[in-house]
Every structure is written in structure tokens, then in C-alpha cells.
Design a protein around this nucleic acid. Structure first.
Lengths: 187, 187, 187, 187
DNA sequence: AATGAATGAGAATTCATTCAT
DNA sequence: AATGAATGAATTCTCATTCAT
């Protein structure tokens, strides 16, 4: 196995793992450095501050979702149902593991009032999340209904992830996803 | 105005305000003591540790919901709709203010992996939350549907509260509550 | 020898010694704590920050000069010469030792641009220093001359202290003081 | 505009600006590198350590004063008064700007006790400063008086610079220079 | 010559907790 | 019950310095 090379992207990846698992305030720069095989001081070679690192983690997750998850909602070569199914599959691959959870929701709740900049970046993520879902529902529903269903779906997903984490049970998300998909059939 | 007397209940009340607003790790014992007009050392006369205090806050919130919110779900003197309406009104009075949020969800997400005891207590709260909603839906739906609708409702409420906090917008919760109530009519 | 009791005044005293000797940026909170027989964290029980401690040191030195040094300039029961002689004697007792130097000048020069608040407090000290000297010279000289001589004297004293420190030679200050005193005779 | 070439002399020049303005301990190698358009690691190609760099800055300033300022004191083609006037003009051009101050005095006071080598180099500068002034006063005064007046003048200049910095007021130095010049007339 | 990654020591500060009074 | 002093470990961040490329 080749030694992991340390660069900004790698640090962001390791940070993401820890931050999603442990929360923003419980994850120390030393934890992150340690996970990267660095000393804590060395992180400041890449990031000016813990906040900047967190910001880049948020942006990186947002990018990833945009390019690897939400994008499928706009793939006109597929049926609405296939598009939503793909989006859901990709989401689950990210959200579900030993910890369960969405770093955006978790960090958002934890820091919304203390670090408004994070809230603002996370809002942007959720808007894209809405839009993607809405774009699929638009195939079957009129604009206003699609809008409401999308908002509801995002809330349900985030709520399910919260319960999944607290109960350590992935079924919450899986059932929610099933419902969301069913809305394209009947609901 | 009578001087607030300092006792366990009062400290729990003040702690709750802070913990819900600021998260578990950002709220220090000094913050809490300060809010109670005490010095931080004095808190240890009432609680052995921050964890114990948090535990009692969780239990206290659970009790409050049981006696003041969930209880209405079982008031057979009212219609299912009235029962749910009351439960929702009471919930909103607790969940909505300048910060928006549910301390159970927030602390649950933040500490689920680090402090399993909290997760366990919070699970118990959410089970009672499920049961209360389910008991109302049972009036109109068969057991299995009521069950699923209740689970979904709790997820939606918690997801809506997360978005409410991140977007600083109370409409997420209000719309969700409306939907939940409508399920007793048609859905 | 009774164990030194630790209180704010004692910490300020120990800080003063170190800060005058080592400069603001070379004196760490750990150094100061150590000199007081405390751990560095314990200092924050008394002072919110290093800057606040420095501020209180400055104010304390200013107070000391006001009450123990400058005050003699205004003692109308003595001749102008005696008043200046006393003021000079008291000054020397403070300024001269193994290190030589005036914490006001030293910290002033070091931090004037970085921490404007210090500059402002130190200006106030130097204004009182001017005024005291001027009040003595007024006995022999007209207002405008007294004013100029006072300003010149303070500059000479501070310059002499700088040289005294750099050359580790107390004669600079002693000769300066002699000249300042002689101005009451002829100059 | 030709790109500044990076060589030892250029680094020393940039360091000087920063060190005079910010003090020795507040100026980091990164600050200096940055001002030179280099990365901090690169500085070590030119200087073994921060101390060596500071030493070379001190020597460079001393050289500059020797060749561009003090030298005028020995120009026998001019009157004593012209010589002193020139020396003063040159000094002011160096000492006065937005910050005001003499790097020799500032660094001397700041590091005298911690880094004796600096004190020693700075002493040498001040001896040349004395000698230059004394050489001019010798034109009018006997040796011992010239000696004393020179010492006094240097102290006054340094003290005035200290006050100029703390009060952010260039008049202190200008008035001092006037007095020093007047001593060649009457005093 | 120059870079940029890495170090390791040390800075200020915070905080849960203890304990004598 | 309450205080306030003290702790000690942890946290974020800085910085002079080294070194392979």
C-alpha cells in the first residue's frame, strides 16, 4: 500500500471523517494532524485556522454532492424515477456508515449561532439539495407541489439521519428514502 | 421582583437555555454558573459533573414533554385532531424562539458517539415522542400505518428544526406541523 | 520568612520585575506564574489576559510614581531644590538596579505601535512626570522656560536610562540627575 | 520599474524597516521573508539565524551612520555649526517617519539583557555617535565640557525619540535638535 | 538559490474539577 | 451552601529552524 501523500485534499478528507464523527468542537487540530501523520503545528502550513479548515471541508463536501450526487437529478437521459433512485443511492453511500450522519446538518446545528459563516455556507448546500430533489419531482408534480415536496424530503432525510445517529440504526434513512422515491409513483 | 432562589431545578432551567442555544461543548460550567448567579465551583454542590448536569437536563426536558406535551395525545375526552393540535401547539412553544431547535436532537447528534449514556436517554425521549403521535394517528389509521406515520412525523419535525436553526426561519417547523395535522384529515 | 501571599498586588509586583527586565514579548505568562509560585492557568483567575495584566502593571507603576515620587514636587513646605532632590532620589531608587530602566519607556517603545492602549496609558504617566518637574522649575523660571526645561529633563532621563541599560552603567542617569538639579542653581 | 533583486543587502534593508517599526520579538522571519518576496525558509540561505540577521542589520545601520551621518562631524572644510547642522539633518531623515525611532535604542533596550552581543554592538554605535558630536563641540568647548555635552546630547536625542514614538509627535526630536545646535552659539 | 513541507518547542487561553475556608 | 483560589490537561496558534528536492 503506497504511503498516503499529504496535501490539502488529503487533510480535508481526514478532517471530514473526524468532524462528521466527533463534531466540530470535539475534533482538535491535534486529532486531525494525528490522522494525517503530521504534528499539529504542521496543519497551519495548509490552513490558517481551524475555521478555515472547516470552511474548506464544508466547501469540499458541497462540491462533492454537487458533482457526484445532485448532478444525477438533472440527467435528462434518465426517467425521473431513475434519477431519484441514483441520487438516493449516492446519498446513502455517503450518509450511512458506523456513525451515520450528515456533516452539514451536524455542524450546522452545532455552530449555526456561534459561527454564522458556517451557517451561510451550509444554507447554500441545502438550497442545492432542495433544488435537485425539486427538479425530479417537477417531472410529476406542478411547481408549487414539487417545491413543497422537496422541502419536506430534505427535512425528512435530515431528521432521519439524526434519528439514525441517535438510535444507531440505518433503517430510519432507508425507509425515508423509500418514501421519497414512492412519491414519484403515488404518495 | 423576588430574587430567584437557587436550587437544582433553577440550575437545570438555566442550563437548559444555554445548552439548547450553544451546544454541549460550547457551554461551560462557568457560563452556567454565571447564568445562575453562582461561581462555577458552587455548581458542584448540586451536580457531580457536567455530564451529570446534562443528564438531569435531559431527564427534566423529557419529564416536561411527558407531562405537558405528550400527555395531550392520550386525552380521550378530545378528538384526535384536537389532541394533535394541542400537542403541536405545546411543542412549538418550546421549540421556537430566537434560536430554534430541540435540545434532544442537538445534543443527541453532538454527543451520540462520545457519550453513549446521553444517546440512550435521548432515545427514550424519542420513543415517547413516537408513541404519542402514533396514539393519535391510531384513531384514523391501522396500527402499521400509524406507526410509520409517527416515525415519519418525528423525523420531519426534527429535520425541520434543524433547517429552522440553520436558516433561522421558523416556517420550516410551522409548515411541517401543518402537514402532520393534515394527515388526520386526508394526507 | 513568611510565605508571600498571592494576591493581585503580589502578582503585579512580580510581573513588574520581569516585564521591566525582559520586555513585554519575552515575558511569558508561564514566567510570571512561576515567579508567583502558580501555574500559568491560575493567573487567569486574577487577570483576563496578558494585556490586562500589563495594563494593571502600568497603572500600578503610574500610581506608585504619583504617590511616592511626583508628589514631592508639590510639597510647598520644602525649597524647590529639596523638592527636586527628593524626587530624584526616589526616582533613582526605582530606576537603578542590576538592569536599569524604566518600564514605561521600555514597554512604550516596544508596544507603542502594536498596542495603542498601552501608549495611551504611558503618555499619561509621562505627562505627570513633565508636570512634576515643571512645577519645580516654575519656582525659578517663567512658565515657558520651565515648560521647556521639564520636557528636556524627561527626555534626558529616559535617554540616560536607555544608555544606562545598554552600557550597564548607572552613571548616565546619575550625571543626568545632577544636571537637572543644577538647573535650579544656574544651568 | 525593475524588480527588486534579492541579495543580502536588500534583505537587510527590508528587515531594518520592520525591526525598527515592530521591535525584535514582534518581527518574525516570515514577516521579513514576506517583505522580501521570499519564503521564510529561503532567508536561511543568507543568514544562519535571526540573531545573525539582526547583527548584520545593526552593523549595517552603524556603517550607514558612520559614512553618511557622523562623517560630517569631521569635515574640516565647514564651520562647526554647519557640520552639526548637516549631521542633524541627516539624522532626522532617518529617525523621523510614521513610527519615529532609533533601531539601536529600541533593540538595545529590548534585548540588552537577553542578548549581550547586541548590546555590545550597539554600544559601539553609540560611542561613535558621542565622538561625532563631541568632535563638533570641541570647536567651541574644552575637552571635558565637550565630552559632557556630547553625552548629554545623545541621551536627549534618544529620550526625545522615545517620547516621539510614544506620543507619535515629531516635535520632541526637532526641538531637541534645535537645542543641540544652539549650544554652539550660546547655551 | 529557492521552495515548501515538516518540526518541536512554546505561546496565550480555556475549562472541568477540587478543596480549604 | 457558597466561595474563590488553584490545578493540570487540553486547545488553538506561532515561530525559528531544518532539509529534501
Amino acid at each position: 500500500m503506497p504511503k498516503q501523500k499529504v496535501d490539502e485534499a488529503h487533510i480535508i478528507k481526514e478532517s471530514l471523517k473526524l468532524l462528521r464523527q466527533k463534531s466540530y468542537h470535539t475534533t482538535s487540530m491535534a486529532d486531525i494532524a494525528n490522522a494525517c501523520g503530521l504534528l499539529k503545528g504542521s496543519l497551519y502550513h495548509y490552513f490558517d485556522s481551524k475555521e478555515e479548515l472547516m470552511r474548506k471541508v464544508i466547501l469540499s463536501v458541497h462540491d462533492y454532492f454537487r458533482n457526484e450526487v445532485f448532478v444525477h437529478a438533472y440527467d435528462e437521459s434518465l426517467s425521473a424515477e431513475s434519477r431519484l433512485q441514483t441520487l438516493i443511492n449516492k446519498s446513502e453511500a455517503i450518509f450511512i456508515d458506523e456513525e451515520n450522519g450528515c456533516i452539514m446538518g451536524n455542524v450546522g446545528v452545532e455552530t449555526a449561532l456561534a459561527i454564522p459563516e458556517f451557517a451561510s455556507l451550509i444554507q447554500s448546500f441545502f438550497r442545492d439539495f432542495f433544488d435537485a430533489i425539486k427538479n425530479v419531482y417537477r417531472d410529476k408534480y406542478p411547481e408549487d407541489i414539487a417545491d413543497e415536496l422537496a422541502e419536506r424530503s430534505v427535512a425528512e432525510v435530515e431528521g432521519a439521519l439524526m434519528l439514525a445517529r441517535i438510535f444507531n440504526d440505518q433503517q430510519y434513512l432507508k425507509k425515508t428514502h423509500k418514501r421519497i422515491l414512492n412519491r414519484l409513483k403515488t404518495d
